[in-house]
Amino acid sequence: MGILGIGTDLVHIPRIAALLVRQPHRLPRRVLSPFEHPLWHALQSSEQRVRFVAVRWAVKEAAYKALYPTFIPTWKELSYLPPPSDTRGKPSLLFLPSSDRKASHGVKLHVSVTHDGEYAIASVVAERVP
């Protein structure tokens, strides 16, 4: 076991809001994984949707930094998911590469996210596991 890499990213939430106003469906289609789309569609307010996309942008950028150059993930191969509603667990970050890419076996991702006011910050540690 050992650390494969670490990554951090900071997102200015108003920038994401402006992108969503100009092209409300393009950014979510590009950035969100198949697991994240239903969660995004279930959100009622535009403010919730903006924050949702901003957090995932930060998480995925941080994960890319932590995994590179061993892995080069795409946006949709990473999924930041809330804990199951029946638990008091933490959110999880999944790396599920498409079948024609290098498998992610032996990698565990640890993620921490915070958002306040106009900013969202994510940190990711990629760990090699047996």
Rank of each mutant, 00 (worst) to 15 (best):
Y64L: 11
L96Y: 09
F95G: 10
S104Q: 07
K60L: 03
R101M: 08
E77Y: 02
S33E: 06
R30H: 15
K90Y: 08
G117R: 03
K76T: 13
S123F: 05
F52E: 06
V124Q: 04
W75Y: 11
W75N: 10
V59H: 02
D86W: 00
L39V: 13
I121Q: 11
K65F: 00
Y80W: 12
W75E: 03
K60D: 03
S79H: 06
V31W: 08
V53T: 07
Q48L: 13
F35I: 13
S99L: 14
S112D: 11
E61A: 06
L109P: 02
P38V: 09
Y80A: 01
H37P: 11
R30L: 15
L93A: 07
K76Y: 00
W57Y: 13
S79R: 07
W57R: 08
V59A: 07
L78T: 02
R88T: 13
A54F: 05
K76I: 05
S104C: 13
K60Q: 06
H110W: 04
E36F: 10
A126F: 00
Y80E: 03
A66Y: 03
W75F: 12
P38R: 07
Q44G: 13
Y80D: 00
P84F: 02
S92E: 08
P34R: 11
A103Y: 09
F52W: 06
F52A: 11
H115G: 08
H105I: 05
A122W: 00
L67E: 02
S98Q: 15
V125M: 11
H115F: 07
T74S: 12
A54W: 03
K65Q: 02
P91L: 04
R26P: 09
K108Y: 03
V113E: 01
F95K: 06
Q44M: 14
S45D: 12
S46L: 14
P84A: 12
E36N: 11
P84Y: 02
L27K: 07
L32K: 07
R101S: 14
Y119R: 10
W57G: 03
S79A: 14
K90Q: 13
H115W: 04
V31I: 14
R49S: 08
S104M: 05
P38Y: 01
I72L: 13
P91Y: 00
R56I: 00
H41F: 11
E127T: 02
Q48V: 09
P84T: 03
A62S: 11
T70D: 12
A62R: 02
H37Y: 10
H25E: 15
A120E: 02
Y68R: 06
